[in-house]
Each structure stands twice: as structure tokens, then as C-alpha cells.
């Protein structure tokens, strides 16, 4: 049930517990219990809408920043990664294999805002040795959901 419930939430987190219980063939109490457990244990970290940022705020910009970081004794990359994660501009922080160490995505109100953030905040963090910033020009898919085309899937209204 855990897995099915998570899958269901991933596809439509707006459903009521009662509807989810019905879809999963279980009781509402059971769903609420499971959800509570998943939230407490940190498996579920929150519920968000998938928003096409460009559709509401054409001026906002996102960037992907590759960071090289000198790991600290006993702490590795944790300390720097957590510090970066604490900035509100930062949408994600990942430890990477390959050329860069940390991959950071940021979103700001303007090109200038993001540049300032990178230059004055990220780049000067102790342990960060270099940054490479790439601005996102257009997003086509977010969280597995295409951001293009309309909802019409090409099927007619009625077929027998």
C-alpha cells in the first residue's frame, strides 16, 4: 500500500484521503495513518503544485550552477551543501559524480538578481573553488509533466 499510495500522490496529490482510500481499495483511516507515518518518517517532505513559472512570471529566471568544492575533513561536502541549501533562492542542491561536485539550481526575479547571488553569496562560500552558471532558457518538462501542448490528447469525445 505504501508504494501505491506514494505513486498516487505523485500523480495527483490534490485528492482527498477518502478518494485515495477508495481508489486504493482501503479505508480512509488507513490512508490517514499511512500518510502520517510517511510524513513523520520524512519519506514525504511536502506537497507542491507543478507550476510553469514562465506562465505566471515571464521575468523570473532559473539557472543551473556547477560548483567545485574542497571537501572538509570529517565533513566531506555536507557542510557546504547544507549551507547552500539554506538560501531561499536555491531550489535544489545535489552532490554529483563527474566534473563538478555540487549542482545547484536557483531561481530569481531577474538575471541580475541571480548573478548577484552567485557572485556575492555562492562563490565566496568557504570551500567553493569555482562556479559555472548556466541560465535556463526554456523548460519543457518539470517533475515528469510536459509544459507544452494543450490538455487535448487527440481522442474524440465519444467512441463506442
Amino acid at each position: 500500500m505504501n508504494k501505491d499510495l506514494l505513486k498516487l500522490l505523485e500523480s495527483s496529490a490534490r485528492m482527498s484521503c477518502e478518494d485515495m482510500a477508495c481508489a486504493l481499495g482501503t479505508s480512509r483511516d488507513e490512508v490517514e495513518r499511512e500518510l502520517g507515518e510517511l510524513e513523520r518518517s520524512g519519506v514525504i517532505r511536502g506537497y507542491k503544485a507543478i507550476i510553469d513559472g514562465d506562465a505566471i512570471d515571464g521575468e523570473a529566471v532559473s539557472a543551473i550552477i556547477e560548483l567545485k568544492v574542497t571537501p572538509k575533513a570529517g565533513l566531506g561536502f555536507e557542510d557546504v551543501a547544507e549551507r547552500i541549501a539554506s538560501y531561499p533562492y536555491v531550489e535544489s542542491v545535489s552532490l554529483m559524480s563527474g566534473v563538478c561536485d555540487l549542482l545547484v539550481t536557483v531561481r530569481g526575479k531577474s538575471f541580475k538578481e541571480v548573478c548577484t547571488f552567485v557572485a556575492e553569496e555562492l562563490a565566496v562560500i568557504d570551500g567553493v573553488t569555482s562556479t559555472a552558471t548556466q541560465f535556463i532558457m526554456k523548460k519543457y518538462k518539470e517533475y515528469g509533466v510536459p509544459l507544452f501542448g494543450d490538455a487535448d490528447d487527440g481522442r474524440g469525445r465519444i467512441s463506442l
Binding site: 474524440g156 469525445r157 465519444i158 467512441s159 463506442l160
Partner: peptide, 13 residues
Amino acid sequence: AGTMEGVISLGVG
């Protein structure tokens, strides 16, 4: 059904 605007369908097979 095929021509009306804004229809939400449960009609296809």
C-alpha cells in the same frame, strides 16, 4: 457532443 465547447468527456472507448 463532438462539437460543443468545454465538454468533459467520459465517452471514449
